Computed example of a mutant assay.
Amino acid sequence: MYLNRSSLVEDSDLLRSGKIELHEYIEKYLERLEQIEPIIQAFVAQDDLRSRLNQEAVKVKSTYPNPKDRPPLYGIPVGIKDLIHVSGFLTRAGSNLPPQIITGEEASIVSDLRAQGALIAGKTATEEFAYQGVIPTRNPHNINHSPGGSSAGSAASVAAGICPLAIGTQTLRSVIAPASYCGVVGYKPSYARIPITGTIFCSSSKSTEAELLQANITAN
């Protein structure tokens, strides 16, 4: 078992109040990631993670020096499913296609997360175009068990306590199944509740405005 409790509410309270310093929190996050990610494989590989996260942290910290002014997600690392465009990241959608042909503007949900003080933990692994295919992600409860459907990387990253919040997408059951398999909270909002700009769809006929979903808030 590779589980570790990670509470979004508790982490947010600690960071916003200054009870834990942001760079100290980032170091603990990176320590957990380096220990667990090679086993769980929840994220798409990235080369400059440490320097990028620290740069984002410096920017957020300078923007909100006063604890009373800090937004709800101040300093929280959020995993983003690799169907959703994020500035500074390639989007591969779990495929072997050249990422240049599926690039696009940053999704509004990502921009909204940044505006609330969130840091981008990285792109989380997905089945090819959220449809099917083998992905390396393992279930933190038992690495020999399935982590669920196409938002498996997002669910596993939270269940393993790597990050307290991750975003997935759902056309059929791609958020609620991985959340269930990995034992975390998966939230499916009402139709059209969250904008889907900057998202690659499974298919135009299957996709709905309910596809972009917030997922996986606490680990236990």
Rank of each mutant, 00 (worst) to 15 (best):
V86R: 03
Y131S: 08
Q132D: 07
I76V: 13
E211P: 00
I162Q: 05
A166E: 01
I200L: 14
S7M: 04
A93D: 05
L165F: 12
E211C: 11
A179R: 00
A45R: 14
P136C: 04
I143N: 08
H23N: 15
T171V: 06
R114Q: 07
R16E: 00
T199W: 11
P195A: 06
G198I: 01
N66H: 09
R16V: 10
I36M: 03
E34F: 13
E21S: 08
A42Y: 06
A42M: 08
E10K: 15
Q170L: 04
R193E: 11
K206E: 09
P140E: 07
I176Q: 00
H145W: 14
E127K: 11
K206Y: 09
K81T: 00
G148W: 05
S204T: 12
T124L: 08
F129W: 09
A42T: 08
E128F: 11
T91I: 05
D47S: 14
A159G: 14
K68G: 13
G186P: 01
D11T: 14
L8S: 02
A125S: 15
Q46N: 10
G198K: 02
L49D: 02
A45P: 03
F129I: 10
S51I: 13
N139D: 06
L165E: 10
L22I: 14
S207P: 01
E37R: 00
D82C: 06
I76S: 06
N96R: 15
I196L: 08
A57F: 05
L83G: 03
G161V: 03
L14A: 08
V58I: 13
G75S: 07
Q170T: 01
L165V: 10
A192R: 12
L113V: 07
K123A: 04
